[in-house]
Design a protein around this nucleic acid. Sequence first.
DNA 1: TATTGTTATACTCTATAACTATA
DNA 2: TATAGTTATAGAGTATAACAATA
Lengths: 158, 158
Amino acid sequence: MGRPPASSPSRPLDRGLLPSLMGYALRRTQSAVFADFAATFATAGESLSPGEFGLLVLVDRNAGLSQMALARALGIDRSTLVPILDRLQARDLLVRRPSPTDGRTHALALTPAGRKALARFSRLVRTHEKRIASGLSTAETRTLIDLLERVRASARSL
Amino acid sequence: MGRPPASSPSRPLDRGLLPSLMGYALRRTQSAVFADFAATFATAGESLSPGEFGLLVLVDRNAGLSQMALARALGIDRSTLVPILDRLQARDLLVRRPSPTDGRTHALALTPAGRKALARFSRLVRTHEKRIASGLSTAETRTLIDLLERVRASARSL
DNA sequence: TATTGTTATACTCTATAACTATA
DNA sequence: TATAGTTATAGAGTATAACAATA
């Protein structure tokens, strides 16, 4: 499996089978898209991760849901969610209210400031999405999302 | 931007605009594929991350390269690389040799055990890739990789 | 002076296990 | 007993800043 030694300092590396792997393309693209997302927000003087954006949208569209329900929807453990909500709550974007019907759960909701911020964030996400899709036609973008969803369906959870 | 409150405990959540976002599909698919990768290795009694696999392939195909060159190829900081190499070296998969020509750098190489392990790992990766691509035709898989690369090219680095 | 590798430090994301309040 | 949220803890991945050795 070895190859002749690399020598000249700045020759592009041999990546072997990596470029033919879907997982490799997925990981590298996701990393670049993540960086573009962060850059878009930083340029606008805002700070938010893709995960936080998804969380805010979910809470906005499903006000009153519990932390367990949200963790399930996000595919993360309930303990992982705690510090994330702490941070968003400290930024006054979201509140944990006592549930009127079940003393064990919290009813999550956006604050008025959170709803206003989400509107701004959504505009930035649209800008970001437009740039990352700028090399693709509308049909190709739809094809890409469709293929990604089909791959996701084939990956086993375990 | 609000919606009527969520009530029934197990109704699928409203995800708003999320399903139309390429970044969202990318993130969820990447997460599922990562889990499938881990499950494939765990089932075979092996333990390796996608990033470690990529690193091993790069070192195998470019024996003698320095940590700086490797960090650049991986798109991570040189300080991030240190504990990763420590771990791989502790597993006897890879060695840092003194460079014969530059006293500041290390010449990275796989150990014989590392080459043998990489052959096993590559077979597992093929199994994994076959499963995640099982819902796609060969042409669709190639299209997906091509579209991903084009998206990556459009994302700005900053 | 500049570069390479390392260390110290910090932050985020992730999980498991154990605790508490409530059902 | 079982569930929801929290805390303590740990590991991986990421970074910046400062340092020693070498160029």
